[in-house]
């Protein structure tokens, strides 16, 4: 019967379903069920950026984690007064600025869009608030975040080991 999908369309938000599906594939939300991801959507802000727009600059205090929903972001590192080097190009599903969820310190690189991009933002204060109210889910996210940082540290160590 077609009544079930009709009722679902009437009562349930399609955009929400898509957002939850998208978040399921982000490494820091790995292992979270639909209910937990639903709660996470409550602390996520979405913002559209034009092409070649600076998201944040190196040296400025970071307060949020960014997830690329659509488009592309380039991470630049200053190499001289007017020079910079692109460290990475991040597409949909990638995230950056994750250190800001742990501590408010100056950003180590500049993030800039290469095309029209939509980003999801999670702000530290909101995440702290979420951790207090739902420590079980919060702990899982922090654990995933620690795994991501550990993997990145290992990659950096291996890179330096090769250059020596």
């Amino acid at each position: 019967m077609a009544i079930k999908p009709t009722l679902k369309n009437l009562f349930f938000d399609k955009e929400f379903e898509e957002k939850v599906k998208f978040l399921q594939n982000i490494p820091i939300f790995e292992g979270l069920n639909k209910g937990a991801l639903g709660k996470i959507t409550g602390i996520i802000y979405s913002k559209k950026y034009a092409a070649d727009e600076i998201i944040f600059e190196e040296g400025k205090v970071g307060k949020a984690l960014f997830i690329v929903s659509s488009g592309e972001v380039a991470i630049h590192k200053a190499t001289g007064e007017n020079d910079s080097k692109i460290l990475a190009k991040l597409g949909p599903g990638s995230f950056f600025g994750e250190m800001a969820l742990l501590e408010e310190l100056p950003r180590s690189a500049t993030a800039k869009t290469t095309q029209e991009t939509t980003l999801f933002l999670i702000y530290k204060v909101k995440f702290d608030w979420f951790m207090e109210r739902d420590p079980r889910v919060g702990l899982k996210v922090i654990f995933n975040l620690a795994k991501v940082l550990s993997a990145r540290l290992r990659e950096t160590s291996e890179f330096f080991a090769k250059t020596l």
Binding site: K47, I55, F56, A64, Y123, K126, W129
Partner: peptide
Amino acid sequence: IDFVFQKIPSRYTETILSLICEIDE
């Protein structure tokens, strides 16, 4: 709130977002 948020210049996004979140808290 989303409409206002979209209109904020990107370089102020984190600051304005932090302001909104702290006031909200």
